[in-house]
Design a binder for these strands. Structure first.
Lengths: 316, 316
DNA sequence: AATCTTCATAACCCAAAGTTATATTGACTG
DNA sequence: CAGTCAATATAACTTTGGGTTATGAAGATT
């Protein structure tokens, strides 16, 4: 005997309402409709669901035990609906993102943290990579969003690119660095300090070369290469080394007093930090919400930087 | 967003089966049917349920969370179906019966016990009454079945009557009664013993009068009147009193050696023990099963009585 | 590249279930 | 006990979800 879950749900509503008319009102149907549905159920079951000829409608014991299951079904359906709403509202689900290590660690990580306190049901899967790798990961569908510095004329085909922050680098050092307190510097003063270089295949490494070339430094000694932001910061803090870092990364560290920047103008990279995603599929709601969040955080970050801008950080 | 429980159920089946075709096979529908249903769901939800263009069908996370509820719904529907089957098979439900106290206590009670070991999900509500009262209770719908001695020409209108045992009474006494061992008795021997009379409004009281008249006893002294079978048996056991009891009741006590019967032939009552129920409503399955059980037990009892019959009990 | 399996689409049809209008019928009340 | 009220049942009709078969399209596999 196959029983329609809808019918069980209806039955529960009628029993709870105490009558056909009220039950019909609750489920949003007309009274004749539910009346006939009940009669069809009774015909199929071969047993009455309500005692015949009793006006305050009296449910049979069979009816009551079926209504029990009807309530279970109604609850499950309700849960399904809220689950769908959460998902469609981007408040649940998964966002898989990847990006260049320095930005991910230095800027995105804390944004992920605050995002997850706001939307704890959204799972974030984060990984690292540079542009070529990220493109591949996007194309095979391993990630939803890449966060990466990209030249506008170099966006990989098939991907959308939304810039979120102009590229701007600074020369970074320990707050205790001998040059950190000086208000103006000469080229000769920084030429002798050792340099920390990011991994050679990273865009930041190219930025480093560009920056040094722009201020006339031709050859320099690299005391450390590779490593994550955390290792770079900790090496900076324990040495007189210098390095090139994105302004935003230094800015985000401002409260920890772990990094300072030198008052030297270097050439900005021609890359912009931005979001990449496949143009042939629109992102899932959770991904959409996450990227919106990142964008708004960056716009806030941009304003912060403009306001408290150079005076505070540039010459800290 | 309203979601159809049927669709959730279907979704669960597809996810569990790992594909549309297999899912369709499981739920017993054609593949195009479920394909279209899924597409309609996706349209309503505004989100994909399965990733596009992946051949080992890969469910979305939304799909998985909905399928979870679908499984809950499937289970609830399954429980409802088995509940309905149990009910319709008379293996669950309630049977409300009432009958004359002596028969209920002496014969029916033990049948109820064995019935309930066989069908533990059937609840039995038992009460007592004589014919007029039982008729009333049947008519107002308080009970489903009455068990009562009735004259065939005296069945109340609107009730069906099914006889299950011919009326036959015996004179009962304690096994230790001075007359119990005698193989033949004279009227004078029993005339002097005190009598236990059932309640004056009971059919058994009429039987008592009939029986004594039939063997020529005109006046007799009543030492006890009223009371239940248990009280009658216990008074019998502690005294030399006599009484009239249905043969079946005495027979059912045979293993407890609490009651004996005297080898005196008395006139049978013109009533027959039988089942009464309202002819305008067919009984619920559980009631049907219970009355069938009672009938078969009584037919077994009848055979027992015929076999081990008079030799054993009549002259015990 | 060919093939195989599986899913999507098309065209059709039926029964479930929705509607409004109206008849019946318990239950209550003067 | 008739009359009234409110709730349920019935009737007649319409819409649509969901079933079918036949067939096309497309991943996956060899």
């Amino acid at each position: 005997m196959k029983i329609d879950p809808n019918h069980l749900q209806l039955l529960a509503a009628i029993v709870d309402a105490g009558g056909l008319s009220d039950g019909a009102r609750i489920v949003g149907k007309s009274q004749p409709s539910v009346s006939r549905t009940i009669m069809m159920m009774e015909a199929r079951l071969g047993s009455r669901l309500f005692e015949k000829g009793k006006r305050p409608l009296r449910p049979t014991e069979l009816c009551l035990s079926l209504a029990l299951q009807g309530r279970v079904i109604a609850e499950a359906a309700q849960r399904a609906e809220t689950a769908a709403d959460l998902y469609n509202g981007g408040k649940s689900g998964t966002a898989r993102l990847a990006g260049t290590p320095i930005f991910m660690d230095g800027v995105i990580a804390s944004m992920i943290a605050s995002f997850q306190t706001a939307f704890p049901e959204v799972a974030i899967h984060q990984s690292y990579g540079y542009l070529a790798d990220l493109t591949e990961q996007l194309n095979v569908g391993n990630i939803d969003i890449a966060i990466c510095p990209v030249r506008r004329d170099n966006v990989p085909p098939g991907l959308n690119f939304k810039p979120i922050l102009k590229g701007r680098n600074v020369i970074a050092c320990a707050p205790s660095h001998p040059l950190a307190r000086k208000s103006s510097l000469k080229l000769a003063e920084i030429a002798d300090f050792p340099w920390i270089a990011p991994p050679a295949d990273s865009p930041l490494y190219e930025d480093l070369l560009l920056a040094l070339r722009s201020i006339g430094i031709k050859d320099f000694k690299v005391s450390f290469t590779g490593g994550s932001l955390a290792s770079i910061v900790s090496i900076l803090g324990g040495s007189d080394a210098l390095t090139v870092l994105p302004f935003s990364v230094v800015f985000m560290q401002r409260h920890s007093k772990a990094v300072a920047s030198l008052p030297i103008k270097i050439e900005h990279p021609d890359r912009e930090l931005g979001l990449l995603w496949r143009e042939d599929r629109q992102p899932r709601p959770a991904v959409k919400r996450f990227s919106n969040y990142i964008e708004s955080e960056f716009s806030g970050l941009g304003q912060h930087i403009s306001q408290s801008g150079r005076d505070e950080v540039w010459r800290a």
